Amino acid sequence: MTATEIAKLHFFAAMSQAHAEGVDSDSTCRALLSLVVGKYLETRPVPDVQSELRFVADNCDPETDFMFMRP
């Protein structure tokens, strides 16, 4: 199983449990993101984590190609 498959499995389980318990999906996503950032900070400096998050934020539009992709 790949890292992506493991992450998807647990993400969808968390979202399903949140829905079943009436917890807002935005709050659940925010809590998961906070846990990811906390884990990153255990082994990476703050500027590196900020750079990682900035890259994800800058490239989150599914309608836009990554700037390093060829046409």
Results as ranks from 00 to 15, higher is better:
16 S>F: 10
2 T>S: 15
60 C>S: 14
13 A>R: 12
50 Q>A: 13
30 R>Y: 11
34 S>C: 01
35 L>D: 11
19 H>P: 00
18 A>H: 06
58 D>H: 11
47 P>D: 13
5 E>G: 04
21 E>F: 01
46 V>A: 11
17 Q>M: 12
58 D>L: 12
53 L>S: 00
67 M>N: 10
16 S>D: 15
41 L>T: 05
27 S>T: 08
45 P>C: 04
49 V>M: 04
29 C>Y: 14
36 V>G: 04
26 D>M: 09
56 V>K: 13
29 C>A: 15
45 P>F: 00
14 A>T: 08
11 F>R: 12
42 E>P: 00
31 A>T: 07
54 R>F: 01
20 A>G: 08
16 S>C: 01
42 E>H: 04
62 P>S: 04
61 D>C: 04
1 M>G: 09
47 P>A: 05
58 D>T: 04
18 A>V: 03
43 T>H: 13
6 I>D: 05
61 D>G: 03
38 G>D: 14
29 C>K: 15
5 E>S: 10
24 D>A: 13
63 E>T: 07
33 L>M: 04
57 A>W: 10
53 L>W: 00
22 G>F: 06
70 R>G: 09
68 F>G: 08
29 C>I: 15
69 M>Q: 11
63 E>S: 14
40 Y>E: 04
14 A>G: 03
59 N>P: 02
62 P>H: 10
9 L>Q: 10
60 C>V: 08
14 A>M: 10
49 V>K: 06
14 A>R: 13
